[in-house]
């Protein structure tokens, strides 16, 4: 586990604390989102996110028990097509944009011991 791994255990605030995010929770969310944020920016994010979540808390005022969630505006049916290969292999094209490749693979730092 790298230097960001140690914050994964920290808890979210419970119901009563929800409205005010602390820097500890910001660190945890940032870790879940795999975002490095500097220590001196944490307080600013905590404040902004608290304000945004206070806005989102307005939703709780409405009883929605009778409403089904709507994930998509048109409730489309996913179209189907025949299982045929339509596109040519363009691996070399796509890998041209990669920061680091070797023998057709993407190179990343070692992460399995």
């Amino acid at each position: 586990m790298g230097k960001y791994g140690n914050v994964i255990d920290c808890d979210f605030p419970n119901e009563s604390e929800r409205m005010s995010l602390e820097t500890k929770q910001v660190r945890n969310v940032a870790w879940l989102a795999r975002l490095a944020i500097t220590e001196d920016a944490e307080a600013g994010y905590a404040e902004d996110m608290t304000t945004i979540l206070a806005l989102a808390a307005q939703l709780q005022a409405v009883d929605t028990a009778a409403l089904e969630p709507l994930a998509h505006p048109l409730e489309l049916v996913t179209p189907r097509r025949a299982d045929r290969v339509l596109e040519a292999d363009r691996r070399a094209d796509f890998q041209r944009h990669a920061p680091l490749t070797q023998d057709g693979y993407y190179l990343v730092p070692k992460f399995v011991e």
């Binding site: 586990m1 790298g2 230097k3 960001y4 791994g5 870790w31 795999r34 975002l35 490095a36 796509f94 890998q95 944009h97 990669a98 920061p99 680091l100 993407y106 990343v108 730092p109 070692k110 992460f111």
Partner: peptide
């Protein structure tokens, strides 16, 4: 696979983050 990559990542999570 594409886009910005940080310099000298020490491990995979460091690279992502």
């Amino acid at each position: 696979r594409f886009g910005h990559r940080c310099a000298d990542p020490v491990d995979i999570n460091d690279l992502f983050c």
